[in-house]
Nucleic acid binder design. Structure first.
Lengths: 243, 243
DNA sequence: TATTTAAGTGAGGTGGACTCATTAAATGGC
DNA sequence: GCCATTTAATGAGTCCACCTCACTTAAATA
């Protein structure tokens, strides 16, 4: 075959760096979300971006770095108006509920991307050194700040480590959305936010179990006595246990 | 070099199927735990098991199936005496605390294996069809059963969806042990179990909406304490934990 | 227009999961 | 004890995907 008659080769275009990066990023986002990171090939990303594989590696040192970049762009979009919106909500319960609901809504709104982040990016060995990890931490810290405000206002009690509360909120959200992220179930961000906020809020309110006003001192002492008793085995079986 | 003088080839031994499977499984467990699943190579697993790569594929259809088998053996060991031990604990709070503590202890005791399960096995596309998923569900259902008992006994209130409670417990445990599983932090199963159990327990108790120590509220709390006492337990509650 | 710069290319390199024809160790009949 | 049969074990080889690099050529610059 003569060179003239050959099928016309791809017109080689030289784009501005930003546009090329954007095109590759968008192609990668689409492919990764469709197939998952491991099942995606750099060849397919390149094809969808309208370049050859080698071009990817001019802009990104590795497939994983490309994933990181895709996720960073996502976080930027998500966080854009967070602080602004939170300022419009008053009261500890409402603020807490808003943040939890917002988080669940993100999971609900873009399950493929969230699955990518939680199941494929986060397990990678260097995740905790990545920018995404730091972005995520800033995000959870905002939630902890709301709880600290509640404690400062006397509405919530200290005593439970804040990290436990944080892990309950985000751990619950993650597990609760698990099946949905795989496309194998449903969940309601509103209902889940209500239930989760209630649980957390109640768990942080003054009660006999942790702390109480001075008037409850005797009750508290009794509570502790009961608890001590629970640790003793009198070898007696009550009627209740039969049920 | 003459054939006679060549380095002696591996003595070809034919083992009973069970022993060969056990050897391969143990080698895979060790390598996967050391390096992580993706970073491990089948060549290294084979070498450690004293066979060549092809032999692996006589017993396991894929590297991933080998991982599944390794994890199944782990679950069997972990679950062996669960039910037995739980029968020795009385009282909703104590039973809940026992299950949570046990779970956290497993995470604490074999972080490499748990990381393998949570970060590398669970994200795989067919996880929810796997035997490990079913084993895990049996395990979380036991925890939900304890809460149902508490509700049936009137010690806890219904109203919060049980799945939310379950996700709080296991989600919190997972997030709380996150850094530790990567070898980048510490956590105390005892302290975390206390805090988490308290939060969950309190979140499921009838709420005295008044914050004061009214006589009414005191009575209610005492009633709850007595109800707890009705399930008498030989387990001793350790409030303080070394952090 | 001639020269310089670097974006873009695509043909390999490499490494790891997996396959399969061949080899030989165990087994059983005689 | 010997041969036939079975099948565990082998290891050379295939395939595929990430990544590299020497080269091409479109744009920028003088």
């Amino acid at each position: 075959m003569s060179p003239k008659a050959a099928s016309p080769p791809r017109r080689r275009e030289r784009w501005p760096r930003d546009e090329r990066v954007a095109a590759i990023t968008e192609a990668a986002r689409a492919v990764f979300c469709e197939k998952g990171f491991l099942e995606s090939s750099t060849a397919e990303v390149a094809a969808r971006a309208g370049v050859v594989e080698g071009t990817l590696y001019r802009y990104f040192p590795s497939k994983r770095a490309l994933l990181l970049h895709v996720v960073e762009r996502f976080y930027e979009r998500i966080f854009a108006d967070y602080e602004q919106q939170l300022m419009g909500v008053r009261g500890t319960w409402n603020r807490l509920r808003f943040l939890i609901w917002k988080h669940l809504s993100v999971l609900h709104g873009d399950p493929a991307m969230c699955r990518l982040i939680m199941h494929e990016l986060r397990p990678s060995p260097d995740y905790r050194r990545s920018s995404v990890f730091r972005l995520n931490r800033r995000y959870t810290e905002r939630t902890m700040a709301v709880i600290k405000e509640g404690i400062a206002a006397g509405e919530l009690v200290p005593g439970v480590p804040l990290t436990i509360v944080r892990d309950m909120i985000f751990g619950c959200a993650e597990h609760h959305s698990w099946a949905y992220l795989r496309g194998e179930g449903q969940f309601s961000p509103e209902a889940a936010a209500d239930a989760l906020t209630d649980m957390v809020y109640r768990g942080l309110q003054p009660q006999a179990l942790t702390r109480s006003g001075s008037a409850d001192a005797s009750v508290r002492r009794l509570e502790q006595a009961v608890r001590r008793l629970e640790g003793i085995s009198p070898a007696r079986r009550t009627r209740k246990a039969a049920g």
